[in-house]
Design a protein around this nucleic acid. Structure first.
Lengths: 292, 292
DNA sequence: TATAATTAATAAATAAAATTTATAGGTGTT
DNA sequence: AACACCTATAAATTTTATTTATTAATTATA
């Protein structure tokens, strides 16, 4: 059997027109007819209902069934291309979410340099959510991710590098009367990370769980900007401790009995791309980051 | 690209010989050489190390990488055949573990008959463990399974039909002084299901957790035989309540504070085979079994 | 160490398969 | 009824896969 036929069939089942499908692939119309015939002959089943005229083409149950499998096969075929391109070019596309990268990268920099891996890394900077998508469809080879839950995609493997916590933070110039409790936070102005980040969901969870109605004055995707604003005492914020470790001018607000999900720093990769030795090396280095 | 080339490559990477691979497929040796060349040309990478002579052929990292993906693609290709054969023949291969089948089947029999599905079902009777394997590689279309945990195979979907409990049982002629406690069981003779069943593992878990050293006098794979022996008061047993609901001549032994995993009655199927309407019907019927 | 045996690569010929061109026949629209 | 649009078929053509025949390389072994 032929991958081409599968592609033709896939397109046909979306397009619902032989001639349109033919146009799409820049082949003549009978090509599509014959491709379908081949598939039907191979499996001995009708795959499409030949209705009269117009875009009334419909898949039979067998056709729908085949479609499902074709999806997977063609997806796997894409991954082949991505993976072999990586191995060929010796360039590894690494997903890097800013907060995590700034925290982790200094810890491995020397090792990466010594192992001559710095030049093989092609950094793709983006939010964790987007990066996970890119990973799944093969556009990324490996990624650091921040997440409150562990990936449940069976095609992805992962290592937990750290389990951090979310913190409420404020400028050191901002003085609170202790002990602080959650209700006090309603009086404060909040500066937050925007919807690209997991932080927003966790913050929402937090406000609902503890019945806080916060006054959010500004949202940004730039966590450095956020930290600077907090330092200037423009407002308080909610962020993973990852972002503030070793950061001056900021205090963590101790709230008794605050219960939030963990913030995992993960190294994630497709398990089918493990045969690449360069990638292996990279995984080893990141998954054995020394504390401090 | 061609499925044939993938098969050639897969075999070549196992066989490590061009001429042996050619023999296997009953083609001439250059066929294999050219197939490999096509793949290498398509991806622009060397896939095998051409070592000198003999079966010293080795895959490059790129070759190993490709192999991984080929596995999946060819597996998916197998599933196509299985699924389309099912749809074509209108015969659904249904996995049926004895205990669960005897309990559930009477509850759906009338419905299956009314919907004309009885003749559609090709029963495959076996233990749950074996049935799950058959399901995964496409030799089964759907299966009832008994399990203490939910399937974690991402290609399988499932419905929980019942959550039953494991019970200690004895003949009604066997008189105990109540309240019974776990230590008393050490004096009893046990008749158990053998290693084909999940029961054995759960029983082992039970004995370890509660520090019982049971006297097992007989094991069988036939649960009807087991029940008959228990009724005859040849010994006591450990079994899911599934097997004894509506069964006379048997008493459940009430042991306070006995904590065991649940016994799920599951309906399991590959999620990629959902498009088949006949199968859908069957799933609906089984997943909405009325209580009693 | 020469020689036979085995293996993989290449070239050219052949066979097989996919695609195109040309055309016919069906169906809805006006 | 004429037209526009679609799919199917037949025959010709192009492309691709396979074979046959041969060579070069390597090891076994006599």
């Amino acid at each position: 059997m032929n991958f081409k036929d599968l592609r033709y069939f896939q397109r046909l089942s979306e397009e619902k027109s032989f001639s349109e499908t033919a146009k799409y692939f820049q082949v003549s119309q009978p090509t599509i007819t014959y491709a379908l015939k081949r598939l039907e002959a191979e499996y001995g089943v009708m795959l499409v209902e030949r209705k009269s005229y117009a875009n009334s083409l419909q898949l039979t149950p067998a056709g729908i069934q085949l479609q499902q499998h074709i999806q997977r096969i063609l997806h796997e075929d894409q991954l082949i291309s991505h993976d072999l391109r990586r191995i060929k070019s010796k360039q590894i596309k690494v997903g890097l979410p800013p907060i995590i990268t700034n925290y982790l990268f200094p810890k491995v920099f020397t090792t990466l340099r010594r192992e001559n891996l710095l030049s093989t890394i092609e950094p793709i900077v983006n939010g964790s959510h987007k990066l996970e998508q890119l990973l799944q469809n093969g556009q990324l080879d490996i990624s650091l991710l921040g997440s409150t839950s562990l990936p449940r995609d069976p095609n992805l493997s992962y290592q937990i590098i750290r389990a951090h916590q979310f913190k409420l933070i404020a400028s050191i110039d901002h003085h609170f009367k202790m002990p602080l409790n959650i209700a006090d936070l309603a009086k404060e102005d909040f500066i937050l990370l925007d919807e690209q980040s997991v932080h927003q969901q966790v913050f929402q969870y937090f406000t609902q769980k503890y019945q806080v109605v916060p006054n959010v004055i500004y949202q940004t995707s730039e966590y450095r900007l956020l930290l600077d604003l907090v330092k200037q005492n423009q407002g308080i914020s909610f962020i993973t401790e990852t972002a503030i470790l070793g950061e001056g001018g900021i205090q963590q607000l101790p709230i008794p009995n605050l219960q939030l999900p963990p913030f995992y720093l993960l190294l994630v990769y497709r398990n089918s791309s493990l045969p690449d030795p360069q990638l292996q090396k990279l995984i080893n280095i990141f998954s054995t980051i020394p504390f401090l």
